[in-house]
Design a protein around this nucleic acid. Structure first.
Lengths: 340, 340
DNA sequence: TAGCCCTGCTGAAACCATTTAGCAGAGTCG
DNA sequence: CGACTCTGCTAAATGGTTTCAGCAGGGCTA
């Protein structure tokens, strides 16, 4: 069984010392080794198919070209895989590789995951949550870099979040641009009922963006329905209540696509067609948004960009702070000019 | 900044040699070190908060307690994240951690990913594909273990696949159990048109399971519609054609849930209700299957179990070969006794 | 009392790359 | 000619763990 090729083998074949070979292969800048030496080492390495032993290298350098990704959930939502994919892609570009772990939100599992990553001397850790929130992060060995993905934390202040304020704003702008100025309802949230309820940092901003832009345009919601669990069935029920309250509803703003999915079903049952009778705008760009007929116009959660941004921040040297990534409006066909 | 605690520190504090400490902490079986020594070392390690330097250990042992996961796709389908989650969970149980990479099906990226993993001396690699197929796996360094997940390969014969034959069988059994014996149609596949087309290993088995069980029960499809891309819109179109061909259709077997989703819409439009007029059974247990009203009865692709099985096989010493994991029938409410 | 085994432990090599200090020789300057 | 610099390279230490060979000393047998 073929033994591994080591640096010494390369050096020997090139007629140089391992030290020289090391410097050359690592492209050290201000070394004084000859052109000639460079060539000999490089060809020797190529001929032998040399691959450095990363364990040995890490032992010396304490770097691993590896980053850790600690997430509370990986399988449940598309959101998670988008974040991971974004991180993977960016890591690949930076010649890093990523160790993925899942904690299920359990602090014990989280601690274990962090230990496992720190033991492997990852160059940095990304902490991701699926529902944006303040995240508890245990003390890390000094020198371990960390960035929060879709989360915030008072100590580790470098974080990546979707720009929900802008997203909320754009959703309303789009509706206004289509000519909607009245008979608009809000599905999913109601300030009266939820004054003190804490949903998440991002939901708060989303709703602020929405309301602020409504105010700026001088229009108001005709009715609002609060929904606790943003799943299709509850969207369906809430939409029915909204139709009862506002029979001439012309536009509905849904807090997310799953609610919109339910709303769509309720509208269809009442004989109201989208977008001819009622326009629909929503958030997240969930898978179902594309399945619906007509396709749902929605403000996307830019998972992949967020994941990518997180690794760029982890590896780069940007200033700490909140980094917002824009939420693009995905135009499909659920918005039209109001009837009549 | 606190320096790392090393094995020597522990040994010194225990008044023993590093060699002794190493053996004790690793629980070597037939060492002759005293009870007393064990205690001293263990308490010293605990007091100092000793954590072994894994880079150093790997350098010696060539093991890393790390496994590699190479997948063609991670973000696109729920399937991918299920596989990953299953693998993550099983790895965690076995005290391993997993390096996830994505290739997008590009052989160059795949080669790069494998290099990156091999360089990091992973204990084994899982190769996963989202659409089951024969997968090309480049030569690996001898001694690198590999298992194929949702894929097959002539050289690396350890693979895990869903038991589609059983899945197909169970779908039909369920329909029969409800009393369906005629006016049954198949949506998504048609032998006449697709005799020579290759879909994937698993689709082939799924359809075989279906047809074999139909034959066994002495019944036959009234009509079949082939669909190339298994997305809702095409399911919708195909269902319309099927209703035209078989106006008294009583049951439809859909090749997957996205098709079923489209079929559901088409049926609703024609005033046919599920399950009272028409029963629906399908495959995959996609997210949409639960969103539909009524909920879709479907034969699930057991992602997580498959992912978990893969790491068990990678780490254990089972015989090579194809390992099938059962596809559970998820009962919701799209099947009822045929009308009339 | 030599020879042997057994117990409980240690010394040192090995794993492999990186890095610092420094050496030999040639050339330059005053 | 001596001091100095510059060039092109190497020796050796370093990082932390595992593991093999073996040592010291006590007890036992012949």
């Amino acid at each position: 069984m073929a033994k591994r090729v080591t640096l010494s083998d390369v050096a020997r074949r090139a007629g140089l010392s391992p030290a020289a070979a090391s410097m050359i292969l690592n492209g050290r800048p201000d070394t004084r080794l000859s052109e000639e030496a460079h060539n000999r080492v490089n060809t020797a390495a190529a001929e032998l198919g040399y691959r450095p032993n990363l364990a040995a290298r890490s032992l010396r350098t304490e770097k691993t070209q590896t980053i850790g990704f600690v997430s509370d959930q990986v399988a449940t939502t598309r959101f998670a895989s988008g974040l991971i994919k974004g991180a993977l892609d960016a890591a690949e570009k930076a010649d890093h590789v990523v160790l993925v772990t899942e904690t299920g939100g359990d602090p014990r599992r989280e601690a274990a995951a962090i230990d496992a990553l720190v033991d492997r001397q990852v160059d940095g850790i990304i902490f991701a949550t699926m529902r944006a929130r303040e995240l508890f992060v245990p003390e890390l060995p000094s020198g371990t870099r960390a960035v929060l993905l879709n989360a915030t934390n008072p100590r580790y202040t470098t974080s990546v979040l979707p720009d929900e304020l802008q997203g909320g704003t754009d959703a309303i702008r789009r509706l206004c641009a289509a000519g909607h100025r009245s008979s608009i309802v809000l599905l999913g949230q109601s300030d009266e009922l939820e004054k003190d309820a804490f949903r998440s940092v991002t939901v708060g901003r989303r709703i602020t963006g929405i309301r602020r832009e409504m105010a700026r345009s001088g229009i108001a919601f005709e009715a609002e329905e609060s929904v606790w669990i943003w799943d299709p069935e509850f969207g369906y029920e809430a939409m029915n209540r909204l139709i009862d309250r506002v029979p001439d509803v012309r536009a509905v703003v849904c807090m997310n696509d799953r609610l919109a999915f339910g709303a769509h079903a309720a509208l269809a049952e009442r004989g109201l067609s989208v977008p001819d009778d009622v326009s629909l705008v929503s958030f997240d760009n969930d898978e179902v948004a594309a399945y619906l007929r007509p396709g749902l116009t929605t403000v996307a959660l830019p998972h992949q960009q967020m994941g990518a941004r997180a690794v760029e921040l982890l590896l780069g040297d940007d200033a700490p702070g909140e980094h917002l990534v824009p939420m693009p409006l995905i135009e499909r066909s659920s918005i039209a000019a109001p009837r009549g």
